[in-house]
Design a protein around this nucleic acid. Structure first.
Length: 429
RNA sequence: CGGGGUGUAGCGCAGCCUGGUAGCGCACCUGCUUUGGGAGCAGGGGGUCGGUGGUUCGAAUCCACUCACCCCGACCA
């Protein structure tokens, strides 16, 4: 992609309304644009990151055996009356009336709908277990949205729902998602700490939140320092052991009964990027999701739900990975792998060299953002650092003279003088 | 929902108190000189001053209402 043709409205100054660094950088890097309180448009750069985040989540869900579906954003109120949540949910639910006076709502979550789907199609114990997920926009009419996409009203969420015959099966599904979440966040360059959580309005008695530890996190958590010391084997995690380590959200922490010695207990702030629940038969019972067992008996299906805040993750990643010059994207979610910087567009030799490099990079399958704008070097470097692409490939008269290119790593700033062949090898290797 | 605040060009702001031709910096356009970490000079374009109503010869400025947005609190993924 040529930067001269790319819609990238970067800002030199920090907009006054942004309070935390991720919000400031997302606005400055031209990733998002606020349309209303807690409601955002995603601009080309921001959407590229979110699509990459989404792709990792999708791959991991599929690997875990979950099947992707897509449920609508608009739901019928009748569905929610079946579970009793239409009245319970309160003002956080955005309620809508259509032209015929029917009550609809913009879905804040999908337990009711997915339960209704399975109720129609699953009749036998032989058809379980099943795990269905979708990645869809949600709307929760928050009392006070803030921090940009971190706490928006409209947000993209991956929500999965597991269906099992019994508690043992449900626990297995739960642990499967637990492990999958650790892998998912690790692939995004994040260290997520699973903490025991209050299941809240969803109900049930087994629940973990996954937190990214940053000073600006909205939630306070307490955990055994052992979490900072252990190396996570995400391909083969010992879920049992991890769940037994003391780590809880503030609400559940009791200094008196806490089993961790004072000098081993850490208090931190975290951004909640995932939340998993086991809630048993709460919805299946209310809505009649039952299957026939081997003896012809009626079995009420055991359920769990598993959410990841997709649109929140780009912000969480920025909170965890930035410096004073801007964002530092991990390779796995970066909007482009490399930024090609033409330092002197007035120089014909420099332009033709850059065009050639641009084509070679693309032919090699490397996602490149080519800064072909007629800007001064300082402005180009500043923009590149701000948008945080993992690699910067700098081409100017100095490089041309020695037939070498300068490759700079955004994270750490290390520079190397390399031939084009070496650059290609490095970026594809 | 309570409390506090702000709406003036794409962004950041001044002007309002004390009514009299709407300004500054950045960004944008043109030209020249420049070019290795956000250039200089010259010229130029862009604003129903959030909206409605009122007071007045005259309103960005005063008054009323209203909308939007920000911050703090309770709430929440």
């Amino acid at each position: 992609m040529r930067l001269s043709e790319f819609v990238l409205p970067t800002l030199k100054e920090t907009p006054a309304e942004a309070q935390i660094v991720s919000h400031q950088l997302m606005l400055r890097a031209g990733m998002i644009r606020q349309e209303s309180v807690g409601i955002y448009s995603w601009l080309p750069l921001g959407l590229r990151v979110m699509k990459n985040v989404e792709a990792i989540i999708r791959e991991e869900q599929n690997l875990a055996g979950a099947q992707e579906i897509l449920m609508p954003t608009i739901q019928s109120a009748d569905l929610w009356r079946e579970s009793g949540r239409y009245d319970d949910y309160g003002k956080e639910m955005l309620r809508i009336e259509d032209r015929h006076g029917r009550d609809l709502l913009y879905g804040p979550t999908n337990e009711e709908m997915v339960t209704a789907i399975l109720r129609d199609y699953i009749k036998s114990y032989r058809e379980l277990p099943v795990n269905l997920y979708h990645i869809q926009w949600k709307f929760r009419d928050e009392v006070r949205p803030r921090f940009g996409v971190m706490r928006g009203r409209e947000f993209l969420m991956k929500d999965a729902y597991s269906f099992d015959l019994d508690l043992e099966g449900a626990k297995k599904s739960y642990d499967n998602m637990f492990a999958t979440y650790l892998r998912t966040f690790t692939r995004m360059g994040l260290k997520a700490v699973p903490v025991r959580a209050d299941p809240g309005a969803i109900g049930g008695d087994m629940s973990h939140e996954f937190h990214i530890l940053t000073g600006t996190g909205e939630s306070a958590i307490f955990y055994d320092v052992i979490y900072d010391e252990l190396t996570l084997d995400v391909d083969n995690p010992d879920v049992e052991a991890l769940q037994s380590i003391y780590a809880v959200e503030e609400k559940l922490h009791d200094p008196v009964s806490c089993p961790v010695a004072g000098d081993r207990l850490k208090q931190a702030r975290g951004i909640e990027v995932g939340h998993i629940f086991y809630f048993g038969t709460k919805y299946s019972k209310a809505m009649g999701l039952v299957v026939d067992g081997p003896e012809g008996e009626r079995i009420i299906v055991e359920m769990g739900s598993y959410g990841i805040g997709v649109s929140r993750l780009p912000a969480a990643i920025i909170e965890a990975s930035h410096d004073k010059n801007g964002i530092i994207w991990p390779d796995s979610v970066a909007p482009f792998a490399v930024g090609l910087v033409n330092l002197k567009v007035a120089d014909k030799a420099c332009v033709s060299q850059c065009e050639d490099i641009y084509n070679r990079l693309r032919e090699a399958g490397i996602d490149v953002l080519y800064d072909d704008r007629d800007e001064r070097p300082g402005a180009k470097f500043a923009d590149m650092d701000l948008i945080g692409l993992p690699w910067q490939l700098v081409v100017g008269p100095r490089e041309l003279a020695v037939d070498r290119l300068e490759l700079k790593r955004r994270d750490g700033g290390a520079r190397e003088e390399l031939s084009l062949e070496s650059v290609l090898a490095k970026l594809t290797g």
